[in-house]
Structure formats: C-alpha cells, structure tokens
Simulated scan of single mutants.
Amino acid sequence: MERPSPTSESARAAQEPSTRPVRTLNLANLLTISRLVLVPLFLVVLFLGAGDDGWRLLAAGLFAVASVTDQVDGWVARRYGLITDFGKIADPIADKALTGSALVGLSLLGELPWWVTIVIAAREIGITLLRFWVIKHGVIPASRGGKAKTIAQLVAIGLFLLPLPAMLDPVRWTFMGVALVLTVATGLDYVVRALRLRAVGRRASEHDGS
C-alpha cells in the first residue's frame, strides 16, 4: 500500500480548517487594545494643541494611526483566523471610544456643533448597549454598512482635526454629511438585526424548555 507523501499531507492539512482554539491575546486583539491606549494620548495632544497647527497635526496623526489599526486588526483577524468573541465586542468599543473622544473634543473646542456629536454618540452608545442586550443570544458582527459608516466617520473627523483653511469647510461638511446619513441608516439596521436575533434566541430557549 502506497503511503501518502509528506507534501500531499501538508497540502491537505493546509486546506483543512484548524480546530485549535484561538487565543484571546492575539495580534488582532492587541491592535484593538493599542487603539484604546491611544485614545487618552490623542485627547491630551488635542487640547494641548488648541490654536497651534503643529500640535493639531500631531493630534491628527495620532488619530490616523489609531484609525489604521481599526482596519488592520480586522484584516489580521480574518486572514489568520484570529476572530474571537472578545474581538467582536472590543473592536466596536475601541472604535466608539476613538470617534467619540474626537467628536467631544472638537465640540468642546467649539469646532464642531454639539448636535453632530450627540447624533453620532447616541447611535454608537445605543448600538453598544444593544449588543450587550442580545449577547446571550449571540454576537452581532459588523456589517458592510457599519464598516462604511466607520470609515466615513474617521475621514470626516480627520478633516475636522486637520488645520485646514476655511475655504475647505464645504469639503469637511460633505464628508460629515455622508457619515451622519450612514450613522443613522446603519443604526436602524442594527436595531432590526438585534430584535430578530433576540426573537430567534427566545424561540430556541422556549423550544429547549418544552
């Protein structure tokens, strides 16, 4: 009987999904944690740089670095199979901490109307609470619309952080308008998905208990 070659065994093993448990403390989650660590540093630089273009550029740079980790950690998690429940919860929380701190900071500095901050913050806090409300029935993963919303918010906030001339204000507000529309639309979508998940979970519980 011919024995399979080591090469064919290796190829077959590479095609088969790994059954090994994924460690919570992995590269993707470390990137998420680093984004949370950058938030207070970003705020300190933002307020120290009030009225100073150099400090504002540094604040915008820190915000950009933290924003990049948001894109990289998701790619790393999917590419290397490092998706964990911790990451599914911590990643959106880190996103909200970053965008929320930037929005509140800009509003406190009088550079962004409070109503913009309130609309976005109310949506983000509400969705976070909604995730915990249905967590015993399952985790709601980020949708494509949610990812587009996050990118739109990051770009819009980045433009407000940069010390740009007043003539570019229409550009800033165009991006912020898109971010606001996506924020509200995806918020409604998450509410519908959460209600469906909870309904399915409750029916499953009732069926198991019968």
Rank of each mutant, 00 (worst) to 15 (best):
L197D: 04
F63G: 08
R198N: 05
T174I: 10
G110F: 02
G146A: 07
L154C: 12
A121Y: 00
T183L: 03
K136V: 12
L129N: 02
L130H: 10
S18H: 10
L30D: 02
I135T: 11
V37K: 06
L103E: 00
P163G: 01
E2W: 09
T69I: 11
L98K: 15
G100P: 14
R78G: 08
I140S: 08
H137G: 09
G105M: 08
A179R: 11
A11D: 13
L180D: 06
K149D: 00
R3C: 07
G87V: 01
L129K: 04
L130D: 10
I89A: 14
W114L: 15
K96T: 15
A194M: 06
N26D: 04
L31M: 04
Y80D: 13
S10I: 12
D73A: 15
D53W: 00
M167H: 05
S205H: 12
L41N: 05
D189T: 01
G209H: 13
S210H: 07
G81M: 03
R12H: 11
W133I: 07
T69S: 15
F175L: 08
W133T: 10
Q15V: 09
W75R: 13
K88A: 07
Q71V: 14
S18W: 05
L197Y: 09
P17V: 01
V181D: 07
L48P: 03
R23H: 09
T99R: 13
V39M: 04
G201F: 03
S5V: 08
L62K: 10
A60K: 05
L129P: 02
T183E: 01
K136E: 15
A94C: 15
R79F: 01
V104K: 12
A156G: 12
W173G: 11
I118G: 10
E111T: 15
I151R: 11
V171R: 08
P113I: 00
S10V: 13
S205Y: 06
F175Y: 10
G138D: 06
G74I: 09
P40T: 08
I135P: 07
T99Y: 02
A194E: 10
W114H: 11
D95T: 14
L57W: 09
F86M: 14
D189H: 10
A94I: 07
V45Q: 03
L161C: 01
E206Q: 13
V192A: 07
L46W: 01
A179W: 05
A166D: 13
D95C: 14
R193D: 03
T24V: 12
T99L: 02
G100D: 00
G177Y: 07
N29C: 03
P4C: 12
L43M: 12
V76G: 12
L188P: 04
V171I: 10
N26F: 01
V68L: 15
P92N: 04
M167I: 08
R144D: 06
A14P: 02
L38R: 08
A13N: 12
L30G: 05
A60P: 11
I140Y: 06
S18E: 04
T186R: 06
L197I: 02
A204S: 07
G74T: 11
Q71F: 15
L25V: 13
G177K: 06
G126M: 00
V45M: 03
W75P: 05
A179H: 09
